[in-house]
Design a protein around this nucleic acid. Structure first.
Lengths: 137, 137
DNA sequence: TTGTAAATAAGAATGGTTCCTATTTGCGGA
DNA sequence: TCCGCAAATAGGAACCATTCTTATTTACAA
């Protein structure tokens, strides 16, 4: 998902396009990995001094709801990244820089039959560590 | 891991055996699934009125450190359960009652070679949903 | 039995997130 | 182009899980 797709999606669903919303999208497009609300607040502060937490959190949730951002949780903090739509996959997540690498393997196929009587509502498969760049740093 | 193994492990590592510590172990042995600190505090309150948060959190961390409890994070809240030692595996977790079912499949074998240049530090594979009991309830 | 380090109580403090109310702003319709 | 109104935002209080601090109590080794 890129900025223009995201803005179109917002318009389509009847949400207003504001400067702050565009800036948030630009931030995540450039980030290319998971970022915390705090990271975003810090960035937004530099553009709009006095921006309120609420604006940031409200938009993060909105973006997550409409499918612009996907989310995970690390060390008690929610993390957000641009949603890579298209097909189901998982991620390696760098503990240092938050960048991700697609993992095409999904273990759910193998597991389904062992959970026949269970109502599956979701699953999570994530790998944590250091990416090549952060290892050499 | 059962209560006696856990108590032995604590003694072995030089930690004191207190009534509260035994009670916490009894709670998790009976629970047979993930529980939050709040769940435990509520239970402990009924036995020791005025027990402090700190006692509960300190012991949860201690138990996690020495390997008596394992932990995960759901909806911004840490969850704890008795550690099923022995061999590496993952869990289905019931969103309703917190009970777990072992999943013997581990996707890491398949994934290793696609992450050759990455330093893997950990991974998480969990399946969420409703167990048979909670579906019919 | 006693000394001492470990464990605990009580509640303040912290950090992330959500809520509340008044004000401002985007944008469709006149 | 301008206006009205619903949506968005600012500012800060409130909330919740968790951690920290200090004084007191307790387990247990000697």
């Amino acid at each position: 998902m890129n900025i223009n797709e995201a803005i179109d999606l917002l318009k389509e669903k009847g949400y207003k396009t504001t400067g702050k919303r565009k800036e948030i999208l630009a931030y995540f497009e450039k980030a290319d990995g998971y970022r915390t609300a705090k990271d975003l607040i810090q960035f937004m502060e530099s553009r709009y001094k006095g921006i309120s937490f609420d604006t940031v959190y409200r938009n993060l949730h909105l973006y997550n709801k409409v499918g612009i951002l996907e989310t995970t949780e690390l060390n008690g903090e929610k993390q957000f990244r641009m949603n890579c739509t298209h097909h189901h996959h998982h991620h390696f997540i760098c503990n240092d820089c938050g960048k991700t690498k697609k993992i095409e393997v999904c273990p759910m196929d193998e597991v389904q039959n062992t959970l026949a009587e269970y109502a599956i509502e979701g699953h999570k498969f994530e790998i944590y560590g250091l990416c090549p760049v952060c290892q050499s740093a």
